[in-house]
Design a protein around this nucleic acid. Structure first.
Length: 203
DNA sequence: GTTCCGATTTTCT
DNA sequence: GAAAATCGGAACA
C-alpha cells in the first residue's frame, strides 16, 4: 500500500474530495491499528465558499486550512463532536476535505468499544461518529498526514461509481454540489437528507 | 467581556 | 419528526 502524497492534496478541493473516495484512512496508536475506507466526503474552500470556516479569512482555528496541504484539520462542534478534514490547495490557499463517513476494515472491535455501539453500520457512518470510533480529537489538529505515524491515508481500490449532492448541515453555499459518496454504500451518512442526487462515473 | 451558534448525534414522541 | 445536549470559536461591543 502506498501513502497518499503531498501533490495529491495540493489541488482544487472538489477534485481531491472525489479522488480520496476509496482511499484508506489509518489510525495507529499504542500498538493499535485502525483502518477504514473513505466512502463519503465534502469539499470546503475559501472566499468563494460561504459555507466554509475559512470564508471570512484566516483565524486562529482555520489557520491550518491555509497552511501546507496534506495536514489534518480537526475541529470541535456542537459541544460534543470532533470532525476530521484533510487540507488541500497550494500553501496559502484555504481548502479542506471533510471526511463524513468511512467503512471499517480493521480494528472493528476497538471501534465498537470506543463508540459504545454494536451495530456495524452505525460505527462510522457520520463525521462525529468516525472520529470517536478512531480516536481522533484536537490533539491531531495540524498533524501532517503525509508523514505522520499516528494518522495517514493509503491509496485504495479503483472506484467505479461516485454520487454527487449538495452538502449536509450548511445554511449557505447550497448551490454547490460538493458532497461525494460511493453510490449504495451502507456506511454513507445523511439518510435524512434526500436532496439533490446526480450520478457520474469517475476514474 | 458577552453573546450567539454550529460542516452532529442521540433520544424521545 | 422534533428537540436536547453541550462548549469552543468567532463576532460584536
Amino acid at each position: 500500500m502506498t501513502r497518499v502524497d503531498r501533490p495529491f492534496f495540493s489541488r482544487y478541493t472538489p477534485d481531491v474530495a472525489r479522488d480520496v473516495l476509496g482511499c484508506v484512512l489509518v489510525r495507529e496508536m499504542d500498538g493499535l491499528v485502525l483502518r477504514a475506507r473513505i466512502v463519503e466526503v465534502e469539499a470546503y474552500r475559501g472566499a468563494d465558499d460561504p459555507a466554509s470556516h475559512s470564508y471570512r479569512g484566516m483565524t486562529k482555528r482555520t489557520s491550518v486550512m491555509f497552511g501546507e496541504p496534506g495536514h489534518a484539520y480537526v475541529y470541535f462542534t456542537y459541544g460534543n463532536h470532533h470532525c476530521l478534514n484533510l487540507t488541500t490547495e497550494a500553501e496559502g490557499e484555504p481548502g479542506a476535505v471533510l471526511i463524513r463517513a468511512v467503512e471499517p476494515l480493521e480494528g472493528i472491535g476497538e471501534m465498537r468499544k470506543r463508540r459504545g455501539v454494536e451495530e456495524l453500520t452505525s460505527l462510522t457512518s457520520g463525521p462525529g461518529k468516525l472520529t470517536k470510533a478512531m480516536g481522533i480529537d484536537l490533539h491531531l489538529n495540524g498533524e501532517d498526514v503525509v508523514k505522520s505515524k499516528e494518522l495517514f491515508v493509503l491509496y485504495g481500490r479503483r472506484i467505479e461509481e461516485v454520487a454527487v449532492s449538495t452538502r449536509i448541515g450548511i445554511s449557505s453555499g447550497q448551490e454547490k454540489l460538493w458532497r461525494y459518496y460511493l453510490e449504495g454504500n451502507a456506511f454513507v451518512s445523511g439518510a435524512r437528507t434526500h436532496n439533490y442526487r446526480t450520478r457520474e462515473s469517475v476514474r
